[in-house]
Structures are given as structure tokens and as C-alpha cells.
């Protein structure tokens, strides 16, 4: 039991963190106001680019794809390159390429949903969150509270202006995962629209 609880939190967090962080509005400089604005957010969709930097090999792996976040219902994170893989989170659990991942408890997806709906208190349980700057250029740092998570994850660094733009995760072993959320194009309200607009 014990391994699972801790292990699961990490991969899931890494998959889903960018998704719910996107919903951070720029002018929300306290967790409470952030929460309020999160609940007021509509659907967001766009493209992303990401880079995994491997410290020991001094090499990088690039990927890109599109995301879509339906407020309160569903999160879709679709990798297009180097391989196609779609992760989908909803109340029903986690699906990978349309197939339910059996060993993933549905409860986690519910937690993510609650976060997306602005229940920030649960997130603050797991991280120390520091907010800096103002609405034009803000910067948030999340440091794991617990040693278990901290053994793998050093911190999460987020920047944005009117919207969330970058998420940088620094792993404890020196590896990095940088995600760049490209600006949503006008009218890109749905996943279908955004993927059609993709080059």
C-alpha cells in the first residue's frame, strides 16, 4: 500500500500539473483570489511544447502536442510528437488513448477536478506556494512539503503574464522538464479547433 500512495502522486502530479496551472489568472496574487478566478475560468485550449533535459546524459528530448481543459469536467493532454498519446482526466478516472488505466484510482481525478474548480487548500497541503510579481509578470514557486516527494522533485517554477506561460520542473537529480504553453489562438475554444489550427 505504502509505495503506491507516494509513487502515484508523483507521476500524476507531473501529468496534470501543467493542466491545472494553466488556469491561474494573472491578477490573482493570493491563493484565495486565485481560487475565485479559477472557478470563473472558461474552457482553455492550445498547443504546448516541452523539453526534458537529462542531466547525466547531457541531452534533451523534445515533445509537442495540444491541451484542452474543460472547466470542472475534463482535462486532455495530447502528445503528438515523438509519439501520439492522449491522457484524459475526468471524474471517471484516467484514460490513456481512450483506455481506462485500471490501476489508477478514480479518486485522484476527482482531486484534480476539485483543484481545477479552485479548491486550492488541498494543493497547499502538498506544497509551499510562493507568489511574486504582479498581474503583468507573475511568478509562482511550489516546493514539496513532504520529504517523500522532495526526494524526486526539487521544485516547480511557473511564470506568466495575463496567462500561464511556462512551467519548469526541477527534479532532485538535476533533470528538468520545461513546458511552454503557446498562446491560445483566437476562437480556439475546443480541442477540435485547436488541433485543426495546429501546423
Amino acid at each position: 500500500m505504502s509505495c503506491r500512495t507516494r509513487l502515484r502522486s508523483l507521476p500524476l502530479l507531473m501529468v496534470t500539473l501543467p493542466l491545472w496551472l494553466m488556469a491561474l489568472p494573472a491578477h490573482a496574487m493570493s491563493l484565495e483570489t486565485l481560487a475565485d478566478h479559477l472557478t470563473a475560468q472558461g474552457d482553455v485550449a492550445g498547443r504546448f511544447e516541452q523539453t526534458r533535459y537529462l542531466a547525466d546524459l547531457d541531452t534533451r528530448i523534445d515533445g509537442r502536442g495540444h491541451y484542452r481543459f474543460e472547466q470542472g469536467d475534463r482535462v486532455i493532454w495530447a502528445l503528438e510528437s515523438p509519439v501520439e498519446e492522449t491522457m484524459e482526466l475526468s471524474d471517471a478516472g484516467i484514460q490513456r488513448n481512450g483506455e481506462r488505466i485500471d490501476d489508477d484510482p478514480a479518486g485522484v481525478a476527482t482531486l484534480i477536478m476539485q483543484l481545477l474548480n479552485g479548491r486550492f487548500s488541498a494543493l497547499a497541503d502538498r506544497f509551499d506556494i510562493t507568489l511574486e510579481g504582479d498581474e503583468k509578470a507573475w511568478h509562482a514557486t511550489l516546493v514539496p512539503r513532504q520529504q517523500g516527494l522532495a526526494n524526486y522533485l526539487h521544485n516547480i517554477d511557473m511564470r506568466g503574464d495575463a496567462r500561464l506561460e511556462r512551467i519548469n520542473m526541477a527534479m532532485a537529480d538535476g533533470d528538468r522538464l520545461n513546458i511552454h504553453l503557446l498562446p491560445p489562438e483566437e476562437g480556439a475554444g475546443t480541442a477540435a479547433a485547436s488541433s485543426q489550427q495546429a501546423p
Binding site: 500512495t5 509513487l7 484510482p105 478514480a106 485522484v108
Partner: peptide
């Protein structure tokens, strides 16, 4: 390693708000 651990561990447990939970 991850696959091995997945096969080894009970799938019933979960974490919510920094608590180990069971549905």
C-alpha cells in the same frame, strides 16, 4: 520498475489532500 511496482502494490489505496485513503 514502475510496471513491477504497479503489479506489486494494492490498487485500492489512494491519496487525497495528503492523506492515504481507501474508497
Amino acid at each position: 520498475l514502475n510496471r513491477w511496482l504497479d503489479s506489486q502494490l494494492s490498487t485500492r489505496f489512494d491519496t487525497r489532500g495528503d492523506l492515504v485513503t481507501l474508497e
